[in-house]
């Protein structure tokens, strides 16, 4: 499924999105680079405030500017076309067409006063130039596609008449209406129960196979990442701290933060074992620590960590960690 050497569909380089607030400049995203290859699922994981959502909104140009500003030198390319500074008209043409997005809270993404069929049809008429009747028929087909029962009836229902899982299915149907090449899913299952989450993840995997679209999955849930992603980007304090395949990240985490995250989950083999927590809290984006941003919370911090850290290549292509000690940590195995 993962296309190893396929050219990048989306290429983000040195993305810096800063917020200019009364309290100071919040460097929410501070130099982020990654590629999404056609057809793959890339996960961006991190805790709240790490910049993962701002990254995804910057890609789509959906942040209100000001207070946000995508800084000089940032680049977001879709199939080689630069999106930063391409203008609102071009972005509107791409959004919902080439790139679609689904959000955590499907209720607030749907307009409560319109029937769901009308909302899907609106997008179809806009992007695919369908007439009213064809759009409605297509809406019914899409609702069936995303596994909504009785789509002919549901098409005339309002968002509040649906359950959370059904609303997320409607959102996915809308996102799929133009068969996008990239779907950005921002915490798509966080508001859902586990059994419904399983349904939605299964649906996403199925649709990905069918349409061959790439998925950029933004989440804080390491379990979800392990279940569905091909490659993973771990973010902390506005930066990428580790990248690799899902097997690398979970099998041999190289950055102390990634290790800390995994260790703070209950162990599957020994559920009663005391959790290893990361001390302290995520620093303030207005005042990121100097040097390694994880230094103050890192159990392995020593001399040398007070210097700014670059992403260090770790052997295979696309395997990096923002820690100067990562090569030796990986070599000596998981020794936390």
């Amino acid at each position: 499924m993962s296309a190893e050497s396929a050219p990048a569909l989306l290429s983000v380089r040195d993305l810096r999105t800063w917020f200019f607030t009364d309290q100071g400049v919040a460097k929410a995203v501070d130099g982020v680079s990654f590629d999404v290859r056609a057809g793959e699922t890339l996960g961006i994981v991190g805790e709240s405030g790490c910049g993962k959502t701002v990254t995804s909104l910057s890609v789509l140009g959906l942040l209100p500017q000001p207070p946000a500003r995508v800084m000089e030198g940032s680049s977001v390319r879709l199939r080689g076309e630069e999106l930063i500074g391409s203008g609102e008209r071009r972005m509107r043409a791409l959004r919902g067409n080439e790139i679609s997005m689904i959000f955590q809270e499907p209720m607030s993404s749907l307009n409560p006063v319109y029937k769901i069929g009308g909302q899907i049809a609106e997008s179809l008429r806009l992007h695919r130039g369908m007439d009213r009747k064809a759009a409605r028929a297509e809406a019914v087909r899409l609702l069936a596609e995303v596994g909504l029962s009785e789509p002919e009836r549901r098409v005339d229902e309002y968002p509040h008449q649906l359950s959370g899982g059904m609303r997320q299915r409607v959102m996915i149907a809308m996102a799929l209406s133009c068969e996008p090449s990239l779907l950005i899913a921002d915490e798509p299952t966080t508001a859902l129960d586990v059994t419904v989450q399983a349904q939605i993840l299964e649906l996403l995997a199925e649709l990905r196979g069918k349409f061959g679209m790439a998925v950029l999955l933004i989440t804080h849930d390491l379990g979800v990442v392990a279940e569905v992603c091909d490659r993973v980007v771990v973010m902390y304090a506005g930066q990428i701290v580790e990248t690799g395949t899902v097997y690398d990240i979970f099998g041999e985490p190289a950055h102390p933060y990634t290790r800390g995250l995994l260790d703070s989950l209950p162990s599957v083999e020994d559920p009663g074992k005391r959790l290893d927590s990361i001390p302290g809290t995520v620093p303030n984006p207005i005042d990121w620590p100097t040097g390694c941003r994880f230094r103050a919370r890192c159990p392995l911090a020593t001399e040398g960590c007070e210097l700014p850290q670059d992403l260090v290549e770790l052997g295979e292509e696309g395997r990096t960690a923002r820690c100067w000690r990562a090569p030796s940590l990986v070599a000596t195995g998981a020794a936390t």
Partner: peptide, 8 residues
Amino acid sequence: MSSDVGSL
């Protein structure tokens, strides 16, 4: 930027 102003 405004944090600089604040300290001034």
